[in-house]
């Protein structure tokens, strides 16, 4: 499968509908931080520029606000294509274009595996440890603690069923060609 077909299969989108009006780029709240703007990501995928897309910062900066998807006159979902590109980048073993985002997403799913749910305080604390920014938000953390908004993890942890599902999902996926 060529690169465009892979993205289309993963995202369920027909990217050939895109006629490069660039409305997605115009409305994207994160475009100012992106190396490739959303319309350029769409076009690069169609041109088969795999390395440029999979190594881009853009695909990791997308927060799936869906403004592009809502406004696309051709009914394409660029946010889904960005998500497909993130999956392919990780499958290819590439370092995420915005490292902190990759670290956060992995930490998030690791946290889910403990209890099936997220425990927000430990998610943030571990993320800060890993990224070496432990002291960035301490004044805010203190204010939240005083207001009773930071809670200890719920015990006992009940993540076993979620972990079984997690393993099944990943095993099935590894069997599929990409």
């Amino acid at each position: 499968m060529v690169f465009r077909d892979q993205i289309e299969a993963l995202s369920g989108q027909n990217l050939n509908l895109c006629f490069q009006c660039s409305k997605c780029s115009a409305g994207c709240p994160l475009a100012y931080e992106m190396d490739l703007k959303p319309a350029q990501v769409m076009h690069s995928i169609r041109l088969g520029r795999r390395d440029s897309v999979l190594n881009s910062r853009a695909i990791w900066l997308c927060v799936a606000c869906e403004t592009c998807t809502e406004r696309c006159p051709q009914g394409v979902d660029p946010a889904a294509a960005m998500n497909a590109a993130r999956l392919m980048a990780l499958r290819a073993g590439l370092e995420p274009g915005v490292r902190e985002v990759g670290v956060y997403y992995k930490g998030f799913v690791t946290n889910m595996r403990m209890n099936g749910k997220i425990h927000d305080a430990s998610l943030v604390a571990i993320n800060r440890l890993v990224s070496g920014r432990l002291f960035d938000e301490l004044p805010l953390a203190w204010k939240l603690l005083l207001r009773g908004r930071i809670k200890p993890p719920p015990l006992p942890l009940r993540g076993a069923r979620f972990r079984r599902m997690y393993r099944r999902a990943l095993a099935r996926e590894m069997d599929q060609p990409l």
């Binding site: 993963l10 998500n83 497909a84 999956l87 956060y104 997403y105 992995k106 998030f108 799913v109 599902m165």
Partner: peptide, 11 residues
């Protein structure tokens, strides 16, 4: 959220 679908489509 966006974390699970970014790491695994099926998950």
């Amino acid at each position: 959220t966006l974390a699970a679908p970014s790491l695994s489509h099926l998950l």
